[in-house]
């Protein structure tokens, strides 16, 4: 079954050493992050804040472009998509 791939900045490996490219069920960015949390407990707090919004200095790229909805993370993730989770070039 075709599933979206999630790739990460290497900076996150410092906190989650076993982190590697992961295939997860399609859905929305929010549901993908929820699945990711099941695989790597605690990782979602690095990506979203306690209101559930994408952190200011974290970017998620979908099909090569920044996601549009940083608040509700409602962008649709299709089975053949690639999701990239990077830190922004900001924040020190």
């Amino acid at each position: 079954m075709l599933m979206p791939k999630v790739k990460f900045t290497s900076a996150l490996k410092r906190f989650f050493p076993s982190l590697s490219e992961t295939k997860l069920e399609a859905g929305t960015v929010r549901t993908v992050l929820a699945k990711l949390e099941e695989n790597y407990p605690g990782i979602s707090s690095y990506i979203v804040d306690d209101a559930g919004q994408l952190r200011q200095h974290v970017n998620i790229f979908l099909r090569g472009e920044l996601i549009k909805d940083r608040i509700h993370l409602s962008d649709e993730v299709k089975p053949n998509d690639e999701v990239l989770i990077f830190q922004a070039l900001s924040g020190g």
């Binding site: 996150l12 707090s45 690095y46 990506i47 952190r55 200095h57 974290v58 922004a88 924040g91």
Partner: peptide, 8 residues
């Protein structure tokens, strides 16, 4: 206080 990843 991670600039990118928030408070831990």
């Amino acid at each position: 206080s991670h600039r990118h990843w928030g408070e831990k």
